[in-house]
Amino acid sequence: MTENVREEAAGAGLCAGRVVVVTGAGRGLGRAHALAFAAEGARVVVNDLGVRPDGSAAAEAGGPAEEVAAEIRAAGGEAVAHGGDIATPAGAASLVAAALGAYGRLDTLVNNAGFVRDRMLVNLTEDEWDAVLRVHLKGHFLPLRHAAAHWRAEAKAGRTPRARVVNTSSGAGLAGSVGQANYSAAKAGVLGLTLVAAAELDRYGVQVNAIAPAARTRMTERTFAATMAAPTDGTFDAMAPENVSPLVVWLGSTASEGVTGRVFAAEGGRITVMEGWRPGPTADKGGRWTPGEAGEVARELLAEAGEPEGVYGAGVR
């Protein structure tokens, strides 16, 4: 990856001249995204708080962001580190300010930061619920809000941007995941936020999309150790985080013009457009149903409908 950064830094690249912010970019998917953007000519603000996989403080706080930024600079690219907590108003504001202060502009925001505190629902504590929703959902909302305010001001000043936002959901947000009620709820919320932001910000030249990636990261390696282990025989590593980044880079570039309010699943070499909730079989009485009638027609409609996707980790439908 470092060699790719070096090769592309001197050339045009898909994101040449763009300034890209990536949250949670010290490791895993975020690191892969930051390096991939740099390889396509972007100047990158690398955000990472440097916490453990469960969000608890680590002695190396802030360190991973600078390590990735230094890796990009060593390869001939441009990057600065940001170690603030983007789930706080001050941290999110300083993130946008870091891009503007270092490079004078902001073109793309990739919301990626997160951690997990997995537990079965009946054992899930309120603190574990709040912590995960805070980093995943509030940690998307606040950077997006501050970036959007900047882009709106630019548009009103006659400098309509070609801005991009890439939010990070999950298969857990699309279908649920056993033992991850907090994480699933947060990632489902990211999807709703994406749809609203895409509708509201289009007038200001901002496109907003979301991805649901599957890759080997600190958040997944313990849960899916057997199926996500890196191959040792030189075959394609389907779970490498770098497989997801090309789509993110494209969505964050001007090449994605006209694509907004969409959700993409990305895993290995597969990209899927997720179509979400759509009206299925329906019945209209033209008046109020009795409970018995409502139940009868509901069963008839269910018989016509397709089977739902299985919840992750349930084993059976």
Rank of each mutant, 00 (worst) to 15 (best):
N123G: 15
A98K: 14
R222S: 12
P231D: 07
L49M: 11
R270D: 04
I72K: 08
S169P: 09
L302F: 15
A229F: 08
R119S: 09
E293Y: 10
G276C: 07
F115W: 15
G189Q: 01
G179F: 13
Q207D: 06
V45R: 13
G258T: 05
V44I: 09
A186Q: 14
H136T: 06
A186H: 14
H146D: 03
V249S: 00
P213E: 02
A188E: 06
R203T: 03
G276R: 05
E242H: 09
G171P: 07
E296W: 09
G11M: 04
L201N: 12
E307F: 00
Q180M: 13
A99I: 07
G287E: 14
E267P: 02
A153L: 03
E60Y: 08
R6E: 03
A198Y: 15
M1F: 10
V46D: 10
L29M: 04
A148R: 10
R162D: 13
A298K: 12
E60S: 09
R162C: 10
T168S: 02
G83V: 09
A10N: 13
G63D: 01
A99G: 11
G310T: 14
R317K: 10
V122M: 15
G11I: 03
V19H: 08
R105F: 09
A185W: 15
I72M: 11
A238T: 06
M228T: 05
E60Q: 03
R152D: 01
A188S: 11
G62H: 14
G286N: 02
T88Q: 01
P241H: 04
W129E: 08
V273E: 15
T88I: 05
A238M: 04
G83N: 07
